[in-house]
Nucleic acid binder design. Structure first.
Lengths: 341, 341
DNA sequence: CTGTTAGCGCTTTCAA
DNA sequence: TTGAAAGCGCTAACAG
């Protein structure tokens, strides 16, 4: 038989309601009774049944996830993680709406506004296009008891409940570590960024450079910039600029494109390192054009965010940490298949 | 409001009991009624509430996990994964007992016997010491409607419901891939096994050798064997034998011990690759004695096993695949901290 | 300070 | 072939 609140009540000759009051310290119970109940609960090893509890509370909570559209393969994985974590807890009354926002910050700001003002939601998880420009809106929402979590990209000044995502400085450092391990005596490196030069990218670059500074045997690090307006021209230029380099680290989203350039080089192909995995990169790994790519388990990241929001909103449990940093994973030819889909 | 079975019943002027019968095709319902209910459920986008369902069924299920004691750090991680997956579903009436078995196969066989005959359990998840010697007992149990899942180590001939664990052949191949990438022109390799030479180790070796065969630029692969009886002597011997080698792959559990030997070498320290991560290996990664270690996400592995058993026993859902292969992860100095604890 | 009662969404008798 | 009723473990409103 199961040990329930009723079991405790029966053994102590009182009503389940009193037991419930004690178990949730709702107050208004004689201290002596409190102690008796607590002792009995301990003795019988009582654990409350969440299922029954949520069922009885009939509380409904809805949170909005505000996510970018691109890169699609990445956010699809995140969504899988979200859905997975939702599997059991939708039955508890916890629901999620995913809102995609396009390129512009304006659009994102507007979306956020709408969500907060609609009164439909009890909280929000957001991947800010730009942490700084969202600081104010997040701050005022949080102060008005509308909890917001940041995701994948932080807005540290905003007072968000907590952040879930990778540490991009570490990611850059890891890239440096790999570049160094995959090359021989000569260590002439290049790092490729694009003009957006977001916070994430800056961090990656800092981390990569920090690594090379700490490791005296690196000859140099060349900084190359892609121009989104004239992509093919700037890719061409990159190809020329990496002819004298032993390893290239693509810190922006253009790994596959750069790889195509490397493929065309006749000799001295550099070791190529980048981020994330899509079909193109998968094949380039198999062809040994890309040596390694650094991934962050998007599936786990998604489910962690759901869990934190759930704990906060339905269990009144604060996240243990302000930063919930997710694993950085190294993917090569040998283990890439585990990371696809 | 929520859409419940009652909602459907009301809209169709019938009782919730009939709706329930249809939803679970328990039979004894007029085809016309069946269709009406199904259509309504579809129309209202009805989803059953698992919480309420389990609560009402009051079914209790208990499964035994039979796991080895060593290496402790590995099984501790697995247990964390198990506990994690259990978090919500214990409230559904699904319980797990973990039984540790010591070194001998006899002890494990006995434990398995006891579990099956006790009548206390509804199923079992086991990490066989040796798949072959457990074939018979698993087979007869499964035939007697006592479902058994294998874990971490398979017993493919036994008719187990399904297997959860890594593909060790692939692990060996991955080690080959890494050894090759981390070395320069000269590729003289050694692989270290121990006398136990279990199925897992054989597979790793095969995979490693397969990789080197496919890659013509590998000079040779030396096979070295550790002797558990005279560990220090054989470690010494290993040290002498790897003096002329560019990379060493430790396929057995002695990565940290071999690393200590490598540390003592004055020059030509080979690239060291092995499996799993404990405190010792963590430090050896930081010191650049170990270059990389291959891990299988034990946390995920544990929770997957729980989920499969739960689905099978409580949801009557068969696993989609016979082999549930878990990810192989590459850990280096740069990302090791994410894998500790 | 404590007990009674009804009900969450679902399943399971039992009766019709 | 269908319905009524009770109950899973917990909570909430109301009464006392």
């Amino acid at each position: 038989m199961r040990v329930t609140a009723k079991t405790i009540a029966k053994q102590l000759n009182m009503s389940p309601a009193t037991v419930d009051r004690v178990l949730h310290n709702r107050g208004g119970v004689k201290p002596k009774t409190v102690n008796k109940v607590l002792a009995k609960a301990e003795e019988l090893n009582y654990t409350p049944n969440k299922s029954a509890s949520f069922l009885a509370k009939k509380k409904l909570v809805k949170v909005a996830f505000v996510l970018p559209e691109y890169p699609e393969y990445f956010w699809k994985e995140i969504e899988r993680g979200i859905d997975n974590a939702l599997e059991d807890i939708t039955d508890y009354g916890f629901h999620v709406d995913i809102k995609k926002t396009s390129h512009t910050i304006e659009h994102q700001l507007e979306t956020v506004h709408t969500i907060i003002n609609s009164g439909e939601y009890d909280g929000m998880v957001i991947c800010p296009k730009d942490g700084v420009s969202l600081t104010n809106i997040i701050e005022s929402a949080v102060n008005n008891d509308f909890p917001i979590f940041t995701f994948n990209n932080d807005s540290p000044e905003s007072g968000r409940i907590s952040y879930v995502g990778a540490n991009y400085y570490d990611a850059g450092k890891l890239a440096g570590d790999l570049a160094s391990k995959f090359t021989g005596e000569s260590k002439r490196f290049a790092i490729i960024i694009d003009e957006a030069d977001t916070y994430q990218m800056k961090q990656k670059r800092k981390g990569f450079e920090a690594f090379t500074l700490e490791n005296g045997d690196v000859d140099f690090v060349k900084l190359l910039r892609l121009d989104n307006q004239s992509m093919s021209a700037s890719l061409e230029k990159v190809r020329q600029n990496i002819a004298d380099v032993d390893s290239v680290y693509v810190a922006c989203g253009a790994l596959a494109e750069v790889a195509e350039q490397v493929k065309q080089m006749e000799s001295n192909k550099p070791v190529l390192i980048g981020h994330d995995l899509n079909d193109a990169v998968y094949h380039q790994l198999q062809e040994d054009i890309v040596t390694a790519t650094i991934c962050q388990d998007p599936h786990y990241q998604g489910s962690l965010a759901v869990r934190l929001a759930f704990n906060y909103l339905m269990l009144d449990k604060l996240p243990e940490k302000e930063d919930n940093v997710v694993k950085l994973e190294i993917v090569t030819k040998g283990n890439a298949k585990y990371y696809l889909n």
